[in-house]
């Protein structure tokens, strides 16, 4: 057993040094997605993996390592060999878990190499079908006048709907009763059934309900109106410019991955973001691929740094942590 371990350790050292960009990639690449299969981030990841695999000439295999708001997967990638064969797609959680979890086993700012931004999924504010308010200003007035009875649903701490709720309450300076759910599905169920009043969630989950008229929609958090929902005003139009944000997704690798490999991956990402199939399928998710300038290591790093700073005071003020 000792011999085996020795051999293994030796192998580890050789393996780490042997990676060079010239013959990269020589075998399949694993894309870790820190959420269960079937969700929006998983879908984004699989579409990118398909396209990037074609560019790189090696299969990019998706591995779902779910748990603790995505931090289990992040911790896994942080300790992976930095050889470019393990890449990692994570969303806005990379920035918010930095504050939400006070005992992360990795440092979000130093544990990863950056490849680039992939997409930013906008959010929408929706309410149960028989909710009295018709527009965003009416909603705000109603909510402020009925703080004792209005309920806001979210999909658990750290979920996009939780973050949006925090931002919304901060923007209108009112504290609301929050009803947490285990994921978006159950939250949407109770919203459709009128058990809770309103929520704010990714277009991926809400667009079809809005189009079918099964929920009332008030605003999108995108800077401009959405192609899929042209009648829906932006939050800024409705008087809440603070509520402009999206669930951005970035692609990472373990810290110390050689730069030529990172560049190769970043180039493959850029190609994927221009792939007509990717664009078309992203449109079904009511989102668009990031621009070519954003699909770069520098843009992702800048985004992460600024987002950590944006969310830290909000989360600390809300006083809810996930540990």
């Amino acid at each position: 057993m000792k011999k085996l371990l020795g051999a293994a350790l030796g192998a580890l050292l050789i393996g780490a040094g042997a990676a060079s960009a010239q013959d990269y990639p020589t075998r399949q690449i694993t894309m870790v997605i820190p959420f269960a299969a079937g969700g929006p981030t998983d879908t984004v990841g699989r579409l990118l993996a398909e396209s990037m695999g074609r560019t790189l000439g090696q299969q990019v295999l998706v591995e779902n390592v779910a748990g603790a708001g995505g931090t289990v997967g992040a911790a896994r990638v942080a300790t992976s060999p930095p050889d470019g064969y393990t890449i990692f797609l994570y969303h806005i959680g990379m920035a918010t878990t930095a504050t939400l979890y006070r005992n992360l086993p990795y440092d979000p700012l130093t544990a990863f190499s950056y490849i680039g931004l992939a997409t930013e999924v906008p959010m929408t504010i929706i309410a149960r079908p028989d909710f009295p308010a018709e527009t965003l200003p009416e909603l705000i007035d109603y909510v402020k006048a009925n703080t004792a009875t209005v309920t806001y649903a979210n999909a658990g701490i750290g979920a996009a709907s939780h973050l949006c709720g925090m931002l919304f309450m901060d923007a209108i300076d009112t504290q609301l009763t929050t009803v947490p759910y285990q994921g978006t599905g159950p939250a949407m169920t109770d919203l459709l059934g009128g058990q809770v009043d309103f929520m704010c969630d990714q277009t991926t989950n809400t667009t079809s309900q809005i189009q079918a008229g099964t929920v009332k929609a008030y605003a999108t958090t995108s800077p401009e109106r959405l192609e899929a929902l042209p009648d829906l005003p932006t939050a800024a139009e409705g008087g809440l410019p603070e509520l402009t944000f999206g669930v951005w997704h970035g692609l990472y690798a373990a810290a110390g991955t050689p730069e030529p490999i990172i560049n190769e991956l970043s180039d493959a990402l850029k190609v994927a973001l221009q792939d007509p199939t990717v664009i078309e399928r992203f449109a079904a998710l009511a989102t668009t691929p990031s621009s070519q300038e954003d699909a770069t290591p520098a843009a992702l790093e800048a985004k992460l740094v600024s987002e950590i700073e944006l969310w830290r005071p909000l989360i600390v003020a809300a006083g809810q942590f996930a540990d």
Partner: peptide, 19 residues
């Protein structure tokens, strides 16, 4: 069922009341 919805999403079909 969440995975079935995911399969629809990957195919570019948005699951929902209008399917």
């Amino acid at each position: 069922m969440a995975l079935m919805l995911g399969a629809m999403l990957i195919q570019g079909i948005v699951p929902g009341p209008r399917v």
